[in-house]
């Protein structure tokens, strides 16, 4: 059975202007307990790759440039 592309809106936003992943930062990717953040090959910035978030906020708290905003996942907002 082939897979479909069902979209979901992710709860964690990264401000590309502020993110310094292109300078080697991976802090948010490193600390996330669910391991759902990655650095994009296309943009060189952090983004949420997997919609599996506990809205716990280490990514936001530990980001050195305040680039991350955690919102509440839509299903429970």
């Amino acid at each position: 059975m082939p897979l479909a592309n069902t979209p979901t809106s992710v709860p964690v936003l990264v401000d590309a202007e502020k993110c310094i992943a292109d300078k080697g930062c991976t802090v948010c990717v490193d600390v996330c307990p669910l391991d759902v953040l990655r650095i994009s090959e296309d943009t060189g910035k952090a983004y949420m790759k997997y919609d599996e978030c506990w809205y716990c906020m280490p990514c936001e708290a530990d980001c050195p440039t305040n680039a991350v905003t955690v919102t509440i996942p839509y299903l429970l907002r």
Partner: peptide, 15 residues
């Protein structure tokens, strides 16, 4: 399953 239906919307850390 949490009432929200979100797999990771648990009380415990879902890890």
């Amino acid at each position: 399953l949490p009432v929200s239906g979100y797999l990771y919307g648990t009380y415990e850390n879902p890890t």
